[in-house]
Design a protein around this nucleic acid. Structure first.
Lengths: 205, 205
DNA sequence: TGTACATCAGTGAACGCGCGTTCACTGATGTAC
DNA sequence: TGTACATCAGTGAACGCGCGTTCACTGATGTAC
């Protein structure tokens, strides 16, 4: 990221990176365009060469987050194939791993208040992430007898909700509430119990 | 809330109420002390007669939220007695009902970034809310054979996480992601499947 | 019942601050000939 | 290879704004005698 004189070289991405670090450090409210510019070694006005404004910068950070997220989820899904169960469990684990590894992106995506429908690009990235989890759920649901099979969208939503809840409540300093268990362990156990309830895991495994 | 001339009468609570409405309408970042004062029909400086500052006002809003929350949860728990299962399910439902009925409090509690350990009062209120759910879990866990019984704190955490995740992702306009199912239905189904996984509900009920 | 006075909850003006955004500009880069 | 020039990414000064907070104050309330 060495500057090359007057022209920065890759200011756009440098601003996004700075924004991510700020969001991570101070929360979505603590992030300011001016500070991001300063951290990128540039005047606030320069930001307007690359973004429409503050919101636009956050939205782009979120979009990149969704893109990474979708990749991570997809990779996890592939790594569990050809077992539907393994694929599904892997995507669950990938969720929490993502939140840990990319906290700035995670906050921009889920806590910054930026609507997923703000731009088509952003909406598309979010949809792709969502669809990986739904595909895993659909795969898995084929192993449930049709008459007691919940819609795939429903139980992908359950897993997403539990993952999200574990992250929000127990994986981050957020509410100050300390976790009674490591988040990974908690989530893995929760998903295991849930899948058993679906009849997809042997009762005493 | 009629003002009686120079002295307000109950400015402290009026400020909290105004803060709650603002937080609900504009999110935790959009809330400002000055605006809350204006809505209460008072000068910003007057706030300092009752609170140490902006943060303190939010913290008090959160504290009242936890107090209501604990009451609601406790009431739900009692209403399900003497059945451990009914009590447990009722607390799950109460969670989402609370989020819907008291969105301002909910945001102040979980999304404002205020630490639960900010003041002893706040910490105590949060702990009380938590303990209701844990008690329900402990009651219920007595029906699981000891050798396959997860710690009560763990599965109360699971239910809490799923409830929280459903609320965050599907019960609020938040991320712009629309819910595939009504949140209540989604959560109820999720908890049902989870409990079946614990062996606490008949496999085909 | 009336008066003097202490208490206290509000006012209103002022502050310094950092914010997002705009504007005319200038220095660097790259391209045509 | 050298020069003229268009393009473009940055500067830096300025703006108006609303914020949280402080301060000396004043008007209302309640109590002692």
């Amino acid at each position: 990221m060495a500057k090359r004189g007057y022209h920065h070289g890759n200011l756009r991405q440098a601003l996004i990176d700075a924004a991510l670090k700020l969001i991570e450090a101070r929360g979505p409210a603590g992030f300011t365009l001016s500070e991001a510019a300063k951290q990128a070694g540039v005047t606030p006005a320069a930001v307007y060469r690359h973004f429409e404004g503050r919101e636009d910068l956050i939205a782009e950070a979120a979009r990149q987050g969704y893109a990474i997220f979708a990749d991570v989820m997809d990779y996890a899904y592939q790594s569990g194939q050809p077992s539907a169960l393994a694929s599904f469990e892997a995507t669950g684990r990938a969720y929490i791993a993502f939140a840990r590894k990319y906290p700035g992106h995670y906050i921009a995506m889920f806590e910054s208040g930026v609507s997923v429908n703000r731009t088509p690009d952003l909406a598309h990235a979010a949809l792709r992430a969502n669809s990986v989890l739904e595909r895993a759920a659909a795969d898995l649901s084929r192993h449930i007898p049709p008459e007691k099979r919940p819609p795939a969208a429903m139980f992908s939503a359950h897993i997403w909700a539990m993952s999200h809840g574990v992250v929000e409540l127990f994986a981050r300093g957020a509410a100050g509430s300390r976790a009674p268990f490591p988040a990974e362990e908690l989530l893995e156990a929760g998903i295991g119990i849930y899948l058993r309830g679906l009849g997809l895991v042997a009762p005493d495994s």
